[in-house]
Measured scan of single mutants.
Amino acid sequence: RSRTTFTAEQLEELEKAFERTHYPDIYTREELAQRTKLTEARVQVWFSNRRARWRK
C-alpha cells in the first residue's frame, strides 16, 4: 500500500473531528470515512498518528 495523500478538505474534516474527540468510536470513524471518501482503516490510522503528534 502506498502512502495516502490527504486533500485539504479531508484534513479539514479530520481535524474538526479531532477537536471534538481524540478517540472517535467506530460509528464516528465510519461516518468520517464516508464523508472523506477514505476507508475506515485510513481514518483510524490518521487519528492514531494525529494523537502521536498532539502528544509531542
Rank of each mutant, 00 (worst) to 15 (best):
R1W: 12
R1V: 05
R1A: 15
R1I: 15
S2L: 11
S2E: 11
S2P: 04
S2Q: 08
S2M: 13
R3K: 15
R3W: 10
R3A: 14
R3I: 13
R3M: 14
T4R: 08
T4I: 09
T4E: 12
T5M: 15
T5L: 09
T5A: 10
T5V: 13
T5P: 10
F6H: 04
F6V: 13
T7E: 03
T7A: 05
T7G: 02
T7K: 05
T7D: 06
T7Y: 06
A8P: 13
E9G: 09
E9L: 07
E9I: 05
E9C: 08
Q10K: 00
Q10H: 04
Q10G: 05
Q10Y: 02
L11V: 09
L11T: 11
L11K: 06
L11M: 12
L11I: 04
E12L: 10
E12W: 08
E12H: 06
E12F: 11
E13P: 03
L14N: 01
L14V: 03
L14M: 08
E15N: 03
E15R: 05
K16D: 08
K16N: 12
A17P: 02
A17Y: 08
F18N: 01
F18E: 01
E19N: 13
E19S: 08
E19T: 11
R20W: 10
R20N: 11
R20F: 03
T21E: 14
H22W: 04
H22K: 15
H22I: 05
H22S: 05
H22T: 03
Y23L: 07
Y23F: 12
Y23I: 03
Y23T: 08
P24F: 01
P24W: 00
P24C: 04
P24A: 05
P24N: 00
D25V: 00
D25Y: 03
D25E: 04
I26Y: 08
I26L: 14
I26M: 14
Y27L: 13
Y27R: 14
T28P: 00
T28E: 13
T28H: 03
T28N: 03
T28I: 07
R29M: 13
R29P: 01
R29Y: 05
R29N: 04
E30I: 12
E30W: 08
E30C: 14
E30R: 13
E31F: 13
E31K: 11
L32D: 02
L32G: 00
L32R: 02
L32F: 04
L32Y: 03
L32W: 01
L32C: 01
L32E: 00
A33R: 00
A33S: 03
Q34V: 11
Q34A: 08
Q34C: 07
Q34W: 08
Q34D: 05
R35G: 03
R35A: 07
R35M: 09
R35W: 01
R35T: 10
T36W: 09
T36V: 12
T36D: 01
T36L: 14
K37A: 11
K37S: 13
K37I: 04
K37C: 08
K37R: 11
L38T: 12
L38Y: 04
L38R: 02
T39H: 04
T39A: 03
T39L: 04
T39C: 07
E40F: 07
E40T: 07
E40A: 11
E40K: 05
A41Q: 11
A41M: 09
A41C: 04
A41D: 15
R42F: 15
R42L: 12
R42I: 12
R42Q: 14
R42E: 15
R42Y: 09
R42T: 11
R42M: 15
V43E: 02
V43A: 02
Q44I: 06
Q44S: 15
Q44H: 07
V45K: 09
V45D: 12
V45Q: 15
V45A: 15
V45I: 11
W46I: 02
W46C: 04
W46Y: 06
W46P: 02
F47A: 02
F47Q: 00
F47T: 00
F47P: 03
F47K: 05
F47W: 02
F47D: 00
F47H: 01
F47R: 01
S48F: 10
S48K: 15
S48M: 15
S48G: 08
N49L: 10
N49G: 12
R50E: 11
R50K: 07
R50Y: 03
R51S: 00
R51I: 05
R51G: 03
R51E: 00
A52R: 08
A52V: 13
A52I: 11
R53V: 12
R53Q: 13
R53H: 10
W54D: 14
W54H: 15
W54S: 13
W54M: 13
W54V: 11
R55P: 04
R55A: 08
R55L: 11
K56R: 12
K56V: 15
